[in-house]
Amino acid sequence: MRKILALALAFTMVLSMAACSTTKKDDPSAKSEGVMTYKEYVAAELDSEVVIEAYVQAKQSWWEDKATVYAQDGDGAYFLYNMACSETDYGKLTQGTKIKVTGYKSEWAGEVEIIDASFEIMDGSYVAPATDVTALLGKEELVDHQNQFAAFKGLTVEASKDADGNEVAFLYNWDGSGQDGDDLYFQASLNGETYTFTVESYLCDKTTDVYAAVKALEIGEKIDMEGFLYWYEGVNPHITSVTKAK
């Protein structure tokens, strides 16, 4: 009898554990009541209040109780600019953390973002895979992926001109006016078209692997990249990793 009871208990535990693991696996597109779907967010007018749920993908900066964060759900991405956030809460915003954000939809130089926002941390976790947007470079549809974690594959590093007119693989700041620690700008081409990529120093500072990798780039080198599809007067990807093309 004891053996049967033990077996029954073990079986129940296994079943309950399986049930738990099922509920923990979030549907990143699912929304709580009163929260917009990504489609509804896209349709919302600029300067209107929006309430979204998303998962932190990367933190860009924190200063004076304001955080700037890339977040994403199963359908699209959000750039949360200068969101009210204590330093303690900023520490809790790790990759995958689910948050509910209330703020205003806004646009700055082409970048659609949520500003004047507040947030609360929710249960759940999701890390978005990089969407391969290589084929969309130079096309209008690319904007549909704005702020998403994206991959660019098989591009060739092109020369930029530094302050002295020399050909270099990257520049500190867009025109070469900066120095180590500033944003890195570099160009890479695909099918005869050249695009500009940035290592944003707040998102990835000079201690990061990507910063070192870009400084080590050579003109003509073939590379794969990942990063966030930021927008500034056109697409301006903020790169988080660079590797030799596979």
Binding site: A163, N173, W174, D175, G176, S177, G178, Q179
Partner: peptide
């Protein structure tokens, strides 16, 4: 401080 201007840096 420079105004993101490489001439100023130089």
């Amino acid at each position: 401080k420079n105004d993101t201007n490489k001439t100023q840096t130089r």
